[in-house]
Amino acid sequence: MESFRCCRRSCLFVIIIRATLVFCLCSWAQMVSAHSRKYTTPNVKRLTDYFSRISIDEGFSQRFGTQNIQINGTAAKLTLDKTSGAGLVSKSNYHYGFFSAKLKLPAGFASGVVVAFYLSNAEKYPKNHDEIDIEILGRSRRDDWVVQTNVYANGSLSTGREEKFYFWFDPTQDFHYYSVIWNTHHILFLIDNIPVREFPNRGAFTKAYPSKPMSLYVTVWDGSEWATHGGKYPVNYKYGPFVASIADVELNGCSVDGTGSCTKSGGSVSGLDPVDGQDFATLSKEQITAMDWARRKLMFYSYCSDKPRYKVMPSECR
């Protein structure tokens, strides 16, 4: 009888151990972030090879968090800690152009941290501003980030046009390109030269299309109130400081000076659309294929599918 009890206890112990292992394995599988999956990325033209890089001091002023900004030639580090975030702003305002930088995100648990690469004129037009956003949001799981794109025009903050994507790589381990094309034809968001979203300037989109000159910003800041599950997971500073690195900046746009005239970088007089060639005006077949791949595999939210949020969908969604 005693040996039966021992056997039963042993069997029960084995069952508990097995159940625990199964639970742990399932939990681990759920925690595996999207960028750890293996993807074969499409081949695309490297638009980032078309332009020269500029030094940080040449292209930017320090916007806030000066004590948390370290500049070294064509590279910089922006830090978020308990005292402040950090931000750079372009010295020029631009009306259309190609804007790109390589970014490396803070490693470790970064819930609530926001790293942003965006164009805006909110300071000049506080009630009627335009904005083109790439916002990279820290998540509630370790080393798991997502990228959110957004477009505002004429102060339409109440109608966000967000689309969110998982990464196909770990953005904390190395530098990767984040780029925006903005011209009379369309706005195109690219990651490592792969288009992930196009916002055309035609039809129903026209009223929502940014039209005024904007500055380029690169920032890291505390988005605890909204960035992670609507603010459910705020920044935990015991895992900080949070350091975002930037390098290989490209600002090839129509810079607008105080008189309203327009010049390309380098000083040659141009029209209002310096990136209007075929490589920038329309998508090639390979770019269309690549964007379709990114949206099928990696996009997990689009404002055009958010019926609970909008009683009346934005006109371009209908």
Rank of each mutant, 00 (worst) to 15 (best):
residue 165 F to R: 09
residue 93 N to G: 08
residue 143 D to Y: 03
residue 292 D to K: 14
residue 54 I to F: 14
residue 278 Q to P: 06
residue 113 V to Q: 00
residue 130 D to E: 11
residue 10 S to W: 09
residue 126 P to M: 12
residue 73 G to F: 12
residue 130 D to F: 04
residue 304 C to Q: 07
residue 203 G to T: 04
residue 288 I to Y: 02
residue 183 N to M: 09
residue 158 S to A: 10
residue 13 F to I: 05
residue 106 P to D: 00
residue 47 L to S: 07
residue 32 V to Y: 01
residue 314 P to G: 06
residue 53 R to K: 13
residue 77 K to Y: 02
residue 135 E to A: 11
residue 299 M to E: 13
residue 116 A to W: 14
residue 21 L to W: 08
residue 241 P to D: 03
residue 39 Y to A: 08
residue 43 N to A: 15
residue 242 F to P: 01
residue 12 L to P: 02
residue 145 W to G: 05
residue 19 A to Q: 09
residue 265 S to R: 12
residue 14 V to A: 12
residue 9 R to A: 14
residue 209 Y to C: 08
residue 252 N to T: 03
residue 205 F to V: 02
residue 168 W to N: 06
residue 141 R to N: 12
residue 5 R to F: 10
residue 100 S to Y: 09
residue 244 A to T: 08
residue 205 F to M: 01
residue 218 V to F: 10
residue 306 D to Y: 05
residue 2 E to S: 12
residue 261 S to A: 10
residue 217 Y to P: 02
residue 104 K to N: 09
residue 186 H to I: 15
residue 48 T to W: 04
residue 15 I to D: 06
residue 112 G to N: 03
residue 250 E to F: 03
residue 236 N to F: 01
residue 287 Q to L: 12
residue 262 C to G: 00
residue 44 V to H: 08
residue 128 N to K: 09
residue 37 R to M: 11
residue 27 S to F: 10
residue 277 G to K: 06
residue 93 N to W: 12
residue 264 K to S: 14
residue 318 R to L: 07
residue 211 S to L: 02
residue 40 T to L: 15
residue 96 Y to C: 13
residue 240 G to P: 01
residue 118 Y to T: 10
residue 70 Q to M: 05
residue 60 F to Y: 13
residue 204 A to P: 09
residue 264 K to P: 00
residue 283 L to K: 05
residue 166 Y to A: 12
residue 42 P to T: 07
residue 203 G to K: 02
residue 175 F to L: 05
residue 252 N to L: 07
residue 68 N to E: 09
residue 272 L to Y: 11
residue 111 S to N: 05
residue 234 P to W: 01
residue 175 F to E: 10
residue 297 K to T: 13
residue 210 P to H: 11
residue 307 K to W: 11
residue 296 R to F: 04
residue 28 W to P: 00
residue 318 R to S: 07
residue 244 A to F: 05
residue 58 E to K: 13
residue 173 Q to R: 15
residue 281 A to N: 11
residue 53 R to G: 02
residue 255 S to A: 10
residue 109 F to M: 01
residue 36 S to W: 06
residue 136 I to G: 06
residue 205 F to D: 03
residue 2 E to L: 08
residue 300 F to Q: 05
residue 133 D to Y: 03
residue 221 W to T: 01
residue 312 V to L: 11
residue 136 I to C: 05
residue 234 P to G: 04
residue 267 G to F: 03
residue 6 C to D: 10
residue 314 P to D: 07
residue 37 R to T: 10
residue 204 A to V: 03
residue 116 A to C: 04
residue 38 K to V: 14
residue 10 S to L: 15
residue 187 I to R: 04
residue 181 I to W: 08
residue 23 F to S: 04
residue 158 S to P: 02
residue 26 C to M: 07
residue 297 K to F: 05
residue 253 G to Q: 04
residue 70 Q to G: 02
residue 170 D to P: 09
residue 12 L to D: 08
residue 216 L to H: 11
residue 208 A to L: 10
residue 317 C to Y: 12
residue 217 Y to L: 14
residue 34 A to Q: 12
residue 220 V to C: 06
residue 16 I to P: 00
residue 61 S to I: 08
residue 40 T to D: 15
residue 303 Y to D: 06
residue 313 M to F: 14
residue 74 T to K: 14
residue 58 E to M: 13
residue 158 S to G: 09
